[in-house]
Amino acid sequence: MSSHPQNEHTSDDDGAVHAHVAPTKLYIGIFLALVAATVLTIGLSLVHLGTWNLAIAVVIATAKAALVVTFFMHLKDDNRFHALIFVGTLLFAGIFLAYTLNDTQHRGQVDRVNGSQMNDATGERAPGGLP
């Protein structure tokens, strides 16, 4: 058997898998926190806060997601590279969202007609679209 390969390994030299086993109470605690956050989200959605509603809903959802990822998915005591993959993926999804919104939010700012669906002069709706 060849000597032990030296790429990233978390365990000692006997090659067996030693996982960090968390106590059951931790998992149940995380679950209760998640349920509390859900109730909070629903509660806050009933209060009319304008644009803040979306921001708060996303923040709470991100907090819940963070709890699930770090504890339930063991990202905390796992190989650092997995955390990099997860965060990197969110970054790329963010790039996709940001650049697409950069287009859809700013159409017609240089010339009002571009992207508009109604011709103000004649009141004619752009053909080919909704009736």
């Binding site: 650049y99 950069n102 287009d103 939010q105 700013h106 017609g108 700012q109 240089v110 992207g115």
Partner: peptide, 11 residues
């Protein structure tokens, strides 16, 4: 294609 001038500039 009709995308906004801002995103054209950035791209």
């Amino acid at each position: 294609s009709g995308q906004s001038e801002y995103s054209t500039m950035v791209f």
